[in-house]
Every structure is written in C-alpha cells, then in structure tokens.
C-alpha cells in the first residue's frame, strides 16, 4: 500500500469495511457523489445501495442509523460538518447512548457517526467548531478523535466493529496535512487507548486532533532549547484512557493540556481533574491548559480566527513557562 493522507485513510477503511461485511452501509448528505471532503468517493459505484444520500436533516441521519443498527446492520453515518450535528443531539444523547443501558444489553447499537470538526479552515462560526465535550459527557457514546492517517484507518475499523455508538471525529485540517505509509492490513487498535507519541522527561502535553500535531511541533522546538516533552495523543475522548494519562503525569510531574475547544467545560478540565484527584502528589507545578478563549467559536476573519486558535507558538510558550516553574 502507498502512503495515504488522513482522508484517503478514511476512504480506504470505509471501502475495506463495505467489502468485508455486507451489513455495513453509509448514510449521509452528498455521500453518493463522494461527500464534500471526498471521504466516500467511488464507493457508490462500488457498493450501490449501501451508500445512501440522506436528506439535509441530521436527526434523520442519526435516528435512521439507530433503527438500522437495532435491526442488526452496521451503519456509518456522515454528518458533513460537526457544527450541524446538534440537530441530532436528541437522537444521539437521549436515544443511542442509552440503548444498551435501558435494555440491560438486550439491544445495542453498532453504529458510527463520522463528522468533520475543527478550525483553522476559515470556516467561520459554523464550519469550525469543536463539539467533543458535549458528546464525551454522555456515558454510552464512545468518542474518538485521531490525528494520524494510520490511526484514522485502524480506529475507523475499530469503531465499525464496536457494538456501541461511536462518534468518530475527523479534524478537517488533518485530512490532507501529510501522508503516512500504510502497508497491509490496518493495525489492530482498541478504542479507549491513548498513545505516547513522543517521549520526554520534563513535562507532558496531552492533545488530540490538529492540536496533537501543533503540540508535536512545539515539543520539537522546545527540544532544541533543551526541554524534553512527552506528547500523548489521547485518540479516544470517551472513555478517557486514565491509566496512560496518570502514568505520564506521574512520570513528568508537569502537565499541559491542549485543545481547540473553548476553555470552560472543555475536556481539559476533566483531564486536569483526573490528574488532580489521583496524581496530586506527583505534580511539580499547577496543571496548565491551552485552549480556545471563551467566545462563541470561531470568528471568520483570518486575524480573529488565528487569535482564537491555539497553535505551536502558544503551546511552546506555555510549555516553556511550565518547564521553568
């Protein structure tokens, strides 16, 4: 296999899943024509009626997938932009998340909701947002947010194989950021595991999505200055990999959490709380967060968007202060 971008990795995983299991089908807006990001390009021609255009109605997309998953199929929904998923919030959070719980596992929903999220694409207030905190708050839905092409492929397979609803977050800026070699079958991956992407003894940065790449860039800069950072790719946002989070926090004693989502109520607060509750004695400095400011995300004008977005410089600057503490 050749080197793939993230979007190609998503397409490859969908193609592989559709080929391997005739219970898998895709439902979403514009998917028959390939989708606005081209994730489903060519799949309608190959799989016919298992790649289905939905009306422009997000509650339909999710609600119909619930019914189909209940029936025993393995739907993969596409919500074109994460900003519009909230019309299906009720279906995801009042229904899908409780399906197993309220039936004591008699019924369950093997369904995936893929959606494109994140800023830095000049998408303005409703094509840029981070939505993960709303959904990661809800027990019963798994939330996954890869950063590397190979993880997109293997985690999408894991999501489709999972017997539970999985919200699969695809950061738009990571779609074509770079290519990654992928030979043979996708790696066996479990939802719920974080990964130490870079090892360093001075502090730990926790990140996901585009911010993982910005954090790695910041860590590279700091390494040049003599500060070595561990960078943890969270990969799964619900349930969080508490073990990896706590291991790394205990190892370095200094923690920086990075997300694009606005600060208040963002996932950083939960990660900080886990560490404060269970690794307090190991900490050598207050936990730091780099996040979007508490304004409705994200202003359209490029200067305001840049102001909003955390980036490698902001991360490096916070990391320097933390290292010096």
């Amino acid at each position: 296999m050749t080197a793939l971008t993230a979007i190609e990795a998503v397409r490859t995983a969908l193609d592989e899943a559709l080929a391997a299991d005739d219970r898998v089908f895709i439902l979403g807006e514009d998917v028959e024509a390939g989708g606005v990001f081209r994730a489903t390009e060519g799949l309608r021609a190959r799989y016919g009626e298992r790649v289905i255009d939905s009306p422009l109605a997000e509650s339909s997309i999710i609600g119909v997938c619930i019914g189909a998953a209940h029936y025993g199929l393995r739907p993969v929904a596409e919500i074109q932009f994460a900003d519009f998923i909230h019309a299906g919030f009720d279906q995801l959070c009042s229904e899908a998340s409780r399906w197993s719980y309220r039936t004591l596992g008699d019924a369950h929903l093997p369904m995936v909701v893929r959606t494109a999220w994140g800023g830095g694409v000049h998408g303005g207030q409703h094509h840029s947002q981070s939505i993960e905190a709303y959904y990661a708050h809800m027990p019963g839905i798994k939330v996954v947010a890869p950063s590397f092409p190979a993880d997109y492929r293997s985690l999408l397979h894991a999501a489709i194989a999972d017997p539970n609803p999985v919200l699969f977050l695809e950061h738009k800026r990571t779609y074509r950021l770079f290519r990654q070699e992928m030979d043979g079958a996708p790696a066996e991956t479990r939802i719920g595991k974080a990964r130490v992407t870079r090892q360093g003894g001075d502090l730990t940065i926790f990140a996901y999505g585009l911010m993982l790449h910005e954090s790695l860039a910041a860590a590279e800069t700091l390494s040049g200055e003599g500060t070595e950072c561990t960078v943890v790719d969270l990969l799964t946002l619900n349930p969080l990999d508490r073990e990896t989070i706590l291991d790394s926090a205990r190892a370095t004693g200094k923690v920086l959490i990075v997300h694009e989502d606005t600060l208040t109520g963002g996932l950083g607060g939960e990660i900080a709380a886990i560490i404060a509750e269970h690794a307090f004695e190991y900490l050598d400095a207050p936990i730091r967060r780099v996040a979007g400011p508490d304004i409705p995300p994200i202003p359209f004008h490029h200067a305001m968007e840049d102001f909003f977005m955390p980036n490698r410089d902001k991360i490096a600057s916070a990391a320097r202060e933390l290292a010096a503490y």
Binding site: I52, S59, S60, I62, G63, V64, C65, I66, G67, A68, A69, H70, Y71, G72, L73, P75, D90, Q91, S94, E95, R98, W99, R102, T103, A107
Partner: peptide, 19 residues
C-alpha cells in the same frame, strides 16, 4: 425500546424499514 422523548421512534422505525 423507547424513551420519554416523543417521536424519536419514528426515525428508528424508518431505520428499521431501511435495513
């Protein structure tokens, strides 16, 4: 299985029909 939220089940029915 149904919840207290009304009419959500109409979409579940459509999904079962589609399946």
């Amino acid at each position: 299985t149904q919840s207290s939220v009304v009419t959500t089940q109409f979409l579940h029915a459509a999904g079962i029909g589609l399946a």
